[in-house]
């Protein structure tokens, strides 16, 4: 193995043999043992890595997880009809929803004692209940 190749491999994979490619490890180790010059280059690179490791140490942020969780707003997911329905399935879904509305309105009408002007809100509520029960 040439010096340049060894140096490139060390630059890319670092000086820890555990990170070296399995198929190159044995020849890299032999190469390092064979020449004091290679060993010196390896030592210089290991020093560089040591210096780099001492840099960019992130400080502690013990409250970060709690801060993120506290800052996360509750979900506001709106109802959307299921995706990928065929035309026929969409028509069926629309028919069910309309049917539920009509039945709900009917129940509301009877609860209201057959008078339309009795309470429109009661009618609407019953329609909603009827619709939800059917859906």
């Amino acid at each position: 193995m040439r010096k340049q190749m060894l140096e490139d491999l060390l630059m890319v994979h670092g000086t820890n043999p555990q990170n070296w490619p399995a198929d190159m490890r044995a020849s890299m180790e032999t190469c390092l043992k064979s020449s004091p010059r290679f060993a010196a280059d390896y030592a210089a690179l290991a020093r560089l890595e040591g210096e780099l490791k001492s840099c960019l140490r992130a400080p502690a942020a013990p409250a970060l997880a709690a801060r993120i969780i506290a800052a996360t707003p509750p979900l506001q997911r709106t109802y959307l009809p299921p995706q990928g329905l065929s035309g026929q399935e969409r028509a069926l879904l629309a028919a069910c929803l309309t049917g539920a509305l009509v039945i709900g309105a009917g129940i509301g009408y009877f609860i209201g004692g057959g008078t339309v002007d009795d309470s429109l809100s009661r009618l609407a509520t019953a329609a909603l209940y009827g619709g939800r029960a059917l859906i």
């Binding site: 960019l56 992130a58 400080p59 942020a61 970060l64 997880a65 801060r67 993120i68 800052a71 996360t72």
Partner: peptide, 26 residues
């Protein structure tokens, strides 16, 4: 959160920015 905070800190160089980045991402 800590793992990604370290990454953000190393890229932004500022504690507060790094916390904000991770919070917004989550």
């Amino acid at each position: 959160s800590m793992r990604f905070f370290r990454l953000a800190y190393r890229l932004t160089g500022r504690h507060e920015d790094a916390e904000d980045v991770v919070q917004e991402a989550f």
